[in-house]
């Protein structure tokens, strides 16, 4: 227990301590100077931080909604698969098992300006006259990475919701059939409430994962062009591993930790509300 507290608590304590220093890995302990709340006030007028925060929020929320709804739709669509068709569900689950890096690679190719499947389809269908620079433009890069992330994470929701659907008691469904419940009401009013509990847990997990998503974005856009797809992880990566600006990075990390704690707390409160 003590070990656990030390192991979990120590890095957090270190981060908090570091966050009040101007600390670079290059100069090490010797070059560290105490700056008090300097790092935190710097965050206040650091436009890159705020843009990263905004991008992180968009990326996480849109991924969550997209992945959640996608997974839900797939779960309902595949609910009554019979016999060999059940294999289809296994196929639909594969993106979850694909390494993130492979997903990134795949979507980089789908979104290529030239010869990318998405642009080919858009051009052939006449929806676009010239290729859309999905990864090479500030308007689209966050969208493109988000789509890739949705593709990657929807199967997780499919898995969770499929399991939850199986746990809906047969008698409840039959009672609803006797009550002349149409397919739509059956989904929304009868089955969906059974998915709320597992759904909230899945949402917490995925929100944290989305906020922390690094390899996908890094491999697809490195956070660019400009800062258009820079999330907090990307920004921190640059601060820590390229600029070695550990003090400032720790200050952001501390804020981030607090934000994440609030998000999880909020979700879990909601969840208690749901199950009550």
């Amino acid at each position: 227990m003590v070990i656990l507290v030390v192991v979990i608590g120590y890095p957090i304590v270190r981060a908090v301590m570091l966050s009040v220093f101007d600390y670079s890995l290059i100069t090490g302990d010797a070059g560290a100077t105490y700056v008090g709340t300097g790092n935190f006030s710097k965050i206040g007028h650091d436009p890159v931080f705020w843009q990263s925060l905004k991008n992180t929020a968009i990326f996480a929320v849109v991924s969550l909604v997209g992945g959640g709804l996608g997974g839900l739709a797939l779960a309902f669509a595949t609910e009554n698969l019979q016999g060999p068709w059940r294999f289809l569900r296994a196929v639909l689950l594969t993106p979850w098992a694909v390494p993130v890096i492979v997903t990134a690679f795949l979507f980089q190719f789908l979104f290529l300006d030239r010869g990318g499947l998405v642009n080919d389809l858009l051009m052939k269908s006449g929806l676009a006259h010239s290729p859309v620079p999905w990864l090479g433009s500030t308007q689209w890069s966050l969208f493109a990475t988000t789509v890739a992330n949705i593709w990657q994470t929807a199967p997780f929701f499919l898995l969770v919701f499929t399991a939850a659907l199986r746990s809906v008691p047969n008698e409840v469904i039959e009672a609803a059939r006797i009550d002349r419940t149409g397919a739509w009401v059956m989904l929304w009013k009868v089955k969906l409430p059974f998915l709320a509990g597992p759904g909230v847990i899945a949402a917490v997990i995925m929100t944290i994962q989305n906020i922390n998503q690094f390899p996908l974005i890094w491999a697809m856009t490195q956070g660019g062009p400009g800062y258009s797809s820079t999330t907090l992880t990307i920004y921190l990566y640059r601060l820590v591993f390229v600029s070695y600006n550990l003090g400032y990075a720790s200050a952001i990390g501390v804020i981030w930790l607090v934000v994440l704690m609030f998000i999880s707390g909020w979700f879990l409160r909601r969840r208690r509300g749901v199950s009550r």
């Binding site: 008691p169 008698e171 409840v172 039959e174 009672a175 609803a176 059939r177 006797i178 009550d179 002349r180 419940t181 009013k189 009868v190 409430p193 059974f194 709320a196």
Partner: peptide, 29 residues
């Protein structure tokens, strides 16, 4: 179809909608 046979059924395990109030359980159909 079940819904059109004008039947009502009471199950051994009740088969109530757990997330609805008693009122709504009765009003749903």
């Amino acid at each position: 179809d079940v819904g059109d046979r004008d039947i009502a059924m009471v199950f051994q395990n009740y088969g109530l909608y757990p997330h609805m109030s008693v009122y709504n359980n009765m009003a749903f159909g």
